[in-house]
């Protein structure tokens, strides 16, 4: 068990290094000049060169990579130039460790941007997660128990429709009709939870519903299929033959077995959404991780791209790991 954890942690670190190298390499393979993108229309070659130097884009890629890695453990300064530091210290941006870099396009430290974006994404993700888990599993179990009824056909049909609609379509539909036209729900917007929980929830309702719809539909189908399979298992018959009341047969015996594999999928999906819900964030104009990442790619903003990709990758592999641990805990047949 301990060995397993150590091994997994090491492999996660290795993977993140590999990803960061790939992102750096990929970025330099792109035939565009990031320094050119740092200033607007009336740009002179001199300014571009100055910016290039200030951002360190003139250094060899390997050096840039190691500067970045060093920044993760020690502080950095932008631009990292002793001459400028001496002449005009006020133009230096100090970046405390762990330093993820400096975005020239945004004129901000990347860590500051991430610190602002992550709570937004987390708010969307966690709320939507609860919604789709409760909704998806609830409807899934219900439709399995009411097998063959009109209710079941309706629920399964509805989930099929929800599943086949693209996220942006659902989002825009909700935004246009529910919120703008009929004013049934407040428009989306982010208020930190600690400031005002009610405003926080109000602003998140539409993104939650949007994101949860697609996932919930998937979970309805998964749950229903697992429940139907489990209900025909021999041990369910055993439970009934023991005289266990039907509700306990369903909850203690059937759901316990049918939902365990769903835990895995749910964990992975939550990880995926925490890594950025790009479409939902874009539709509702929320500056979460996903939207930040998309914008950074459009701007070829290397430090932001690297940070977002690494963060996303980290969240995903971390959840992978947590899910494996949880699964071993839930299924006694699995040993680590």
């Amino acid at each position: 068990m301990f060995q397993y954890v150590v091994k997994r942690v090491l492999s996660i670190i290795g993977m993140l290094i590999l990803i960061s190298v790939s992102v750096f390499a990929l970025f330099f393979a792109v035939p565009a000049d990031p320094a050119r993108l740092t200033c607007g229309k009336n740009c002179t070659p001199a300014i571009i060169e100055a910016n290039r130097h200030a951002l360190g884009y003139d250094k060899p890629i390997v050096v840039q990579y190691f500067d970045f890695m060093k920044g993760l453990v020690s502080e950095r300064d932008f631009p990292d130039d002793p001459v400028i530091a001496k002449n005009s210290p006020q133009s230096i941006t100090h970046c405390p460790a762990p330093c993820l870099g400096y975005s020239a396009t945004q004129g901000q430290l990347v860590s500051t941007m991430i610190k602002q974006a992550f709570p937004i994404t987390a708010s969307i993700a966690v709320g939507a997660f609860v919604l789709w888990l409760v909704g998806g599993i609830g409807i899934g179990v219900l439709s399995a128990l009411k097998r063959g009824s009109i209710l079941e056909r309706g629920l399964v049909g509805a989930s099929l429709v929800a599943y086949s609609l693209p996220t942006f379509f659902i989002g825009l539909l909700l935004l246009d009709i529910v919120s703008i036209k009929y004013g049934l729900a407040p428009p989306a917007g982010y208020t930190p939870f600690v400031d005002d929980p009610v405003a926080w929830a109000k602003g998140m309702i539409l993104p939650w519903i949007t994101l949860a719809m697609v996932f919930a539909a998937l979970y309805v189908r998964l749950t229903r299929a697992n429940m139907l399979e489990t209900l025909s298992e021999d041990y369910i018959r055993t439970a009934r033959a023991k005289g266990v009341p039907e509700w306990a047969v369903i909850v203690r015996h059937a759901m316990r077995a049918a939902l365990t594999p769903i835990v895995t999928i749910a964990g992975l999906d939550l990880g995926g959404v925490l890594a950025g819900a790009a479409i939902t964030e874009t539709v509702f104009n929320l500056n979460g991780i996903g939207k930040t990442g998309v914008y950074a790619i459009q701007q070829l903003d290397l430090p932001v791209i690297v940070a977002v990709v690494l963060l996303s990758a980290f969240v995903i592999v971390l959840f992978n790991f947590l899910v494996d641990l949880l699964y071993a805990f839930l299924d006694p047949r699995v040993t680590l």
Binding site: E233, D234, Y235, A239, A241, A257, P332
Partner: peptide, 15 residues
Amino acid sequence: SMIFQDPLSALHPYY
């Protein structure tokens, strides 16, 4: 009470 042919599938794997 009743016992079944295949005790592995007749017992709940998680308890």
